[in-house]
């Protein structure tokens, strides 16, 4: 069976490798637009922003760049950066609440969405989900409430502003419960890894499954899939991180899962209706930015092996093994 679908719009590609590599991997993965999230290297000033936009231009790639709204405890010059081409703001939820409020005010008058990393750092001193598996492995765990506490707090603040607020890579069922009845300016994004894997996949210290936010319990995974189906979730994104330092003790291994090269294929391999997938990876993200995707690809369904050595990403490793969809 074959279907024709718009290229996807990946709202969460970390700046973990060169724009050239991201552009090439995105092409393989059927990604027409990507939003670069600045968690690996800082992007908070004109210089860093211009550098990434120039590289994207050279690669002829539709790269949107998010800037840090708060960098080292200070507000970034969001108005100037907006004019210079920044398309989104990225913040951690446990920054100074007054600064977060200022970011929301900026976002509403500049009409630029704010992407929230909902995570309480003080409660997150672990390397995987807080679970019996983490205990059996002797690893410190990150509890679900490290996320849901922050979701509840930021949601309350969001109700007072009309800025578009996106909760990025939500992992916990408790967060979904909180976000079920959110106002229309608040959006929910999930990372595709959390729809495929649970913390049990870490097995005996398999570092390919070490990522951030962490893989949660099977119950959380089911709750996220269910929320996608019911469209409580607005977006599925890749959270692509090109991590190469994996042959190390679990606690020292790099965080992240490489999959931009197979993102659209993975999304259409999910146990979700194809129309829902199209909405969550293409239509909804495009709408958020007022963009229309005019490029289409053809997807064929079957059983396909993944060969990560063909990835254009610098991270030629992935825990994904097979696909049910490929781009023709």
């Amino acid at each position: 069976m074959k279907i024709k679908v718009p290229k996807s719009f990946d709202l969460n590609v970390k700046n973990s490798e060169s724009v050239a590599k991201i552009a090439a991997a995105a092409k393989n993965g059927g990604v027409g637009y990507a939003l670069m999230i600045p968690t690996i290297k800082p992007i908070y000033d004109k210089l860093h922003l211009a550098y990434n936009l120039k590289r994207a231009n050279e690669e002829n790639f539709n790269l949107l760049v998010a800037i840090e709204g708060i960098h080292q405890g200070k507000l970034s010059e969001i108005s100037i950066l907006r004019k210079k081409g920044a398309r989104a703001i990225y913040i951690n939820s446990d920054e100074d609440m007054n600064l977060i409020k200022r970011v929301f005010e900026y976002a509403s008058f500049l009409d630029i969405p704010v992407f929230i990393n909902a995570n309480n750092k003080a409660l997150s001193l672990g390397v995987m989900n807080d679970s019996p598996r983490a205990y059996a492995l002797g690893l410190n765990g990150i509890p679900n409430y490290a996320e849901s506490i922050e979701v509840a707090k930021i949601l309350e603040l969001s109700k007072n502003f009309d800025a578009k607020i996106v909760f990025q890579s939500i992992t916990a069922k408790e967060s979904i419960e909180i976000l079920k009845n959110r106002p229309s300016n608040v959006y929910v994004d999930v990372c595709i890894d959390n729809l495929y894997f649970s913390d049990e996949d870490v097995g005996e210290f398999n570092t390919l499954f070490k990522t951030t936010p962490p893989l949660r319990s099977e119950e959380d995974r089911q709750a996220l899939l269910n929320a996608c189906e019911k469209e409580i979730v607005d977006f599925i994104s890749s959270n692509h991180i090109a991590a190469t330092q994996k042959d190390l003790p679990f606690e020292e291994a790099e965080y992240g899962i490489s999959k931009l090269d197979i993102f659209t294929q993975l999304a259409y391999s999910l146990p979700l209706p194809h129309e829902t997938v199209t909405k969550l990876i293409s239509t909804n993200p495009a709408k958020l930015f007022g963009i229309e995707i005019n490029e289409y690809i053809e997807i064929e369904f079957g059983e396909y092996e993944i060969d990560c050595f063909t990835f254009s990403s610098k991270a030629k490793n992935t825990p994904y093994k097979t696909l049910k969809a490929k781009i023709v």
């Binding site: 002797g138 690893l139 410190n140 005996e204 210290f205 003790p249 679990f250 606690e251």
Partner: peptide, 24 residues
């Protein structure tokens, strides 16, 4: 670090004996 003896055991011909790895 938890898991190091387990990882080492995959690469060696000799027997690995874990004398304590992290909190594992």
């Amino acid at each position: 670090r938890a898991g190091v003896p387990k990882i080492l055991s995959k690469y060696v011909k000799s027997s690995i004996i874990n004398a304590g790895d992290g909190a594992h």
